Amino acid sequence: MIDETLHQTVRVDLGERAYDIVIGPGVLAETGTYLATLAPGTRCAVVTDENVAALHLDAVRASLSGAGFEPGTLVLPAGEATKDFGHLRQTVEALLDARLERGDLVVALGGGVIGDLTGFAAAVTRRGMGFVQIPTSLLAQVDSSVGGKTGINAPQGKNLVGAFYQPRIVIADTAVLDTLPVREFRAGYAEVAKYGLINDAPFFSWLEDNLDAITAGGPARTQAIAASCRAKAAIVARDEREAGERALLNLGHTFGHALEGITGYRSDVLVHGEGVAIGLVLAHAFSARMNLCSPDDVKRVTAHLETAGLPTDLTPVRAHVPDADALMDFIAQDKKVSRGALTFILTRGIGEAFIADDVPASEVRAFLQQMLES
């Protein structure tokens, strides 16, 4: 049973497409109840990866079966390489072979890779099937499972093929995070810190004071995840398709995606959250270079992420970066270039991020060259 003292629900207010994010230990075992209430009389399929299947698939299937579902299952390889055209085709064909109908549910059980891929498959199969997110990583619980961005990677860059497609519900069990490798939990924490750095300086201060309690689990972990989801939900409700304010959620990501891309998305070198952590520091350092924020802000961000066990400079990727121009090629794919200027999320200090759509590419290149040489 769910411990109600550790349970929170965050509403993503999108009118007819609004949905809940249920957060807390034990909610995964209630999956069948949630889905039966959400879409009675439907069928479902679960898409997951090999690592998550070994840990959590049996519990989810048992819960679904207990609620009257007979779920089909597709188990894919784990890792960023799965987020490609080949596995998208495999997923779509599995849903069609199972003869699932448009009103049935496709359940993504896993981290960001599975959530993004499965959500995109649900969006394009039969022109849109019901979609449920069960994120099993910290990064997915606070970021990729919320807000409806789905998609796959292309050789040209990360997340360049996809769709905005909202889930029907997000079921975020905080207890499953105890099964994560330490590296994966730390990587997810970068996205938690990001929400404080965007527009909530008091939340960032709270994170600095409560990092150990969040790592240990319990009420602090639930609170951190709920606060992160609430922050993202508020932005998504105002700007679902990233016409403006939602771009703030990309703080640290333009640099981070470029670092991931230049390594070939090799998880042995850099996982997404580690790229974001480095990107958060670079975004603040570049802002300081542009005299927008204080060097003390850069030091504070760096110190907190280092305390969380995250990389904060280019050391992990240096061997894969021939020069600043190579990184600029990936940045140009990630964000639109217009007349030599780039759109970046910069900051005037902790919790004061803003969208800058006129950043000279030459300044970014010079900054990256300096970082590579330091």
Rank of each mutant, 00 (worst) to 15 (best):
S228R: 05
I350G: 00
T263R: 01
A283R: 02
G279E: 07
R348K: 14
D323W: 12
D357Q: 15
A233H: 01
P322L: 03
E240L: 06
V359M: 08
T347A: 13
V317W: 00
H320R: 14
Q333A: 14
R318S: 08
A247Q: 13
E260N: 07
V281D: 07
A332C: 13
T315W: 06
S228G: 01
F344P: 03
A361E: 15
S287P: 13
G279S: 15
D239C: 05
E274F: 04
A231F: 10
L259K: 00
G351V: 11
F286G: 01
A231K: 00
N291I: 07
R241P: 04
L342C: 08
V359A: 07
V236C: 00
L368W: 09
K299Q: 15
D313R: 09
L248M: 08
P360I: 14
S267R: 15
V337F: 03
V276G: 02
G264K: 04
A247V: 13
L270R: 02
F344W: 08
A227T: 15
R318Y: 05
H320W: 12
D358Q: 15
D357L: 04
A361G: 09
A308T: 11
S338D: 15
I331Y: 05
D268M: 08
A308M: 07
A356K: 01
I331F: 06
T312I: 15
S294N: 10
